[in-house]
Design a protein around this nucleic acid. Sequence first.
DNA 1: CTGAAAGCGCTTACAG
DNA 2: CTGAAAGCGCTTACAG
Lengths: 335, 335
Amino acid sequence: MPTLKDVARLANVDVSTVSRALNNTAHVHPATKARILEAAKELGYRPNPIAQGLRRGRQHTLGILLPRLQLTIFAEIAQGAQEEARGLGYSIIYADTGDDAKLEAESLNRMRGGIVDDIIIAGTGKNGRILRDIRAEGTPVVQVVRMQEHSMSSVVADYYACSYEAVEYLVDKGCRKIGLIYGPSNISPYKRRYEGYQDAVREFELESICVTPSTSSVPNSFEFGYRSAVRMLDEYPDIDAIMAAVDIQGMGALRALRERGIRCPDDVRVMSLTGHAIGNMLETTMTAMEVPALDMGRKAARMAIETVEAKASPGDKASVQHLVFSPTLVVRESA
Amino acid sequence: MPTLKDVARLANVDVSTVSRALNNTAHVHPATKARILEAAKELGYRPNPIAQGLRRGRQHTLGILLPRLQLTIFAEIAQGAQEEARGLGYSIIYADTGDDAKLEAESLNRMRGGIVDDIIIAGTGKNGRILRDIRAEGTPVVQVVRMQEHSMSSVVADYYACSYEAVEYLVDKGCRKIGLIYGPSNISPYKRRYEGYQDAVREFELESICVTPSTSSVPNSFEFGYRSAVRMLDEYPDIDAIMAAVDIQGMGALRALRERGIRCPDDVRVMSLTGHAIGNMLETTMTAMEVPALDMGRKAARMAIETVEAKASPGDKASVQHLVFSPTLVVRESA
DNA sequence: CTGAAAGCGCTTACAG
DNA sequence: CTGAAAGCGCTTACAG
């Protein structure tokens, strides 16, 4: 790969002049400039971003840490973030943490120290210390989907409303026995969904039916939804609605119903509390409180990048923003 | 962030000694070493990977370009690659090309020039020139899923066998009118699936039923599968099996059947030619030729990284490998 | 308008 | 065993 030096030699000028000509950072005599541009072209010169980054102190790279991509809202978050980052001239360094605190810490530590300019994370909630250190080092951190640290910016959906409004809708449809499939309440969205559900249940004087499978499995999964639904159907044979925290759990519930010959929505309604694209691609399409995942990803990226570009001081509290997206009820077949 | 210089000052030695002590790259007097380690610890020193990369000429970063992640095999490819890369001490720079040649070229150009050490790509097939240039610059390129350039390594599945064996299976089940939903044949997996289908159809003396939707839409999508199936059912009312190139198309086909009250598998069987995780998470679980996507991602990453680590010379043909994974028939409900 | 110098943070021959 | 120097490829005050 040719370097600045090679171009300078060919054009018979100093490297600094080449740099200025190529970056339009100072007046360079038109004739000189022409010579330089031609030399650069001839050699197929392209600046080394690593060297530029080291010198400028900025890599134009955004780090993203997500629990997993497959069949979750995080795939759309990642896509939105990537689109936005690309538009702003940033690359994405992506790490899948598998919701494992150790892997997450490892990835965070790999990212800090100059390799990324800013970080977007949907975290396990167990590395607050590292995150705060990173932020103190001057790297903006934006939390997406999950909001665990109030001192750092966040882009989330109103998970409380997702639950509450879903119950309202189901009650309106005549349901009185509404079960909730959720997940560990140390993760903020699950917690908020649970709270919204409990408040609504109290409000409408319903029985609270919350179930998680006995065996431990990843909450954000088909298996988890399926097992939760099976248990619910066993313990509450007269249940008339199942709300799943996320789409993939809802798919598990639909499968459980099908296996038992229970009709949906006729016998039991099923609803996803945070739907995204997949709800519309099923045999029985799924009614859901939809969340604008692509937009959330875009916003998070923009927020992170703007903070860097504004060179906000590390502890600048004014630059901390919390964005909350409202869900939209999308009625399909399942409820 | 503290630098080597800061550590050196605190420990009262030269930066070079600190570097040697921290990297275990030469004998350093135990006492000195202890002092240095303590100083490093006290300051919370961590090496700047960007500077290391510039100096060493290696970034320990792997670039991955994929058409899209959502609901495709590429999400698993990405995950496998990421797991493997992590294990080998590499980060991932990820770019979603949306199967757009321009975006792909843009991403490739952003990645070249030092930011990544190697590249994994499932490409559009339209940037062969850039890929060859990148390879000539010394950056190993591994093609995954799609194999467009014979001069570069690849990790793919045997798509021909996927089709051929699926037809065999369906014929064995008594099917005689088997339709194929596929995609643009300038993309190698679609082409191979088509060839396998045609050969099998000829072999078993069946009618060739290939349909694509009139309106243009992304082939790797639910919509595409749905529309293709609808058209097939209209034009061949006595069809008894539908093979979909990919899972998400198969889901579209299942939906089309459901809407028309056609029973699956009783009336029409549905099969995916390259199944992955999702086939098992549906109301009607989907019979598929399964492809080990996670493994393919892992292998591709390992291949790319090993080539870098071996410092293979750019044009070293000996380092070009083509890996082909065989599919496995997984019988579920839909066929 | 242009060159020479310093420096981003690190590593690695080269002396001693 | 350790320091001083050069250099990875670039940018940017500083002179002129």
